[in-house]
């Protein structure tokens, strides 16, 4: 049922996500700098960055086609919709019936295909190199993510993210061995999909090793701002999905203002801890060679399949 409170919760979820996403990126960057003994940029640095980029004019390559210009908007829209269906604050989301966990994976894939196509559009070596690498990561990460979500949906007998989270959150406390294995796989996938160390380095500008940065090398101005914002949204969405699947406590299931009011600080607290963990992972690991990435992701994929099998074997 689509209720008014559901619509309000839906819009609120998207707006909060849009507003919070750069903050999470800033938080991770700050902690990473501290952990690496550097002086950290301000927490609000990503916002300043976005503002600056939006103000700048967009420099387009002479041969850029319309596909190149529309891709950032599509990527941004996909990520906004992902944040709309991922249960961040509440599980009563009207959009969640329109797109379930499989459609969520499809959304990530849609964004990936468009950004890769846009990278190939200009025809520079780095763009197509980045596109190839991004698709390479994608084709292994995507099924792994799907299998992780399947383990959860086998437990809850539903592929709707909202229902999965609600069922897991409102059961008496139980540890599911399958979810534990799936959690590890999810962490691997999340690192790869968000272009984090050990798969990619968001801070690099050394062309030969980069993936995400190579993809967006030709973007500038507002297009770049949208892509950066979308990347923050993706990080937030992955964090929220991970927290919702594996640590779901505290999410509001009814749309009373009070429940939402409690849900927001709980979410922020969980995200803050998650951000520190991410910064820690990025600090204590080294970036691996590109050729090792398929092995890394194949491990994630196998773990996810094992999680499914564990569920079938143990029924939990």
């Amino acid at each position: 049922m689509v209720t008014l409170s559901g619509i309000v919760a839906q819009i609120l979820a998207i707006v909060v996500a849009l507003a919070l996403a750069p903050l999470l990126t800033g938080w991770v960057n700050q902690w990473r700098a501290w952990l690496q003994n550097r002086s950290a940029p301000s927490l609000l640095q990503p916002y300043r960055m976005l503002h600056k980029l939006f103000n700048k004019e967009s420099v387009l390559a002479e041969s850029a086609s319309p596909l190149f210009r529309i891709a950032p908007y599509i990527v941004f829209a996909c990520m906004a919709l992902v944040c709309g269906i991922a249960p961040t604050l509440s599980t009563d989301l009207p959009l969640a019936t329109a797109a379930d966990a499989i459609a969520l994976v499809g959304l990530f894939a849609l964004a990936r295909v468009f950004i890769s196509l846009a990278a190939m559009d200009i025809g520079t070596s780095f763009g197509s190199l980045g596109a190839r690498r991004e698709m390479l990561i994608g084709f292994l990460a995507e099924p792994a993510l799907l299998m992780v979500l399947f383990s959860a949906s086998l437990i809850t007998q539903s592929t709707s993210l909202a229902n999965i989270v609600q069922t897991i959150a409102h059961q008496p406390f139980a540890i599911y061995p399958s979810l534990a294995v799936a959690g590890v796989a999810f962490t691997f996938v999340a690192l790869a999909e968000n272009a984090r160390i050990p798969v990619d380095n968001p801070a690099t500008h050394l062309e030969l090793t980069m993936i995400h940065e190579a993809l967006i090398l030709e973007y500038s101005g507002r297009h770049l701002a949208l892509i950066e914002w979308a990347a923050s949204l993706k990080l937030l969405a992955y964090s929220c999905i991970g927290l919702a699947l594996f640590l779901p406590w505290g999410i509001a299931s009814a749309d009373t203002p009070l429940a939402m009011l409690i849900a927001l600080p709980v979410l922020i607290a969980k995200l803050a801890v998650g951000g520190i963990v991410l910064a820690l992972i990025e600090t204590i690991n080294a970036k691996m060679r590109l050729f090792r990435v398929p092995e890394f992701l194949a491990t994630a994929f196998l773990l996810a399949v094992i999680a499914l099998l564990v569920h079938v074997l143990l029924g939990a």
Binding site: S65, L67, A109, R112, V113, S116, L117, M120, D121, I122, G123, S128, A131, M135, L136, G138, F139, L140, E142, P143, L146, M147, F150, F301, A304, V305, L308, L309, V312
Partner: peptide, 28 residues
């Protein structure tokens, strides 16, 4: 479940193939 995983892998690889197909013919 193993078959389902393989199907997911095939679907994702199909995306790879199609990006190659489209990117190499129409883009660049």
């Amino acid at each position: 479940p193993v078959v389902a995983a393989a199907i997911a892998l095939v679907a994702a690889l199909a995306g790879y193939v199609m990006v190659k197909f489209y990117g190499v013919i129409f883009l660049g």
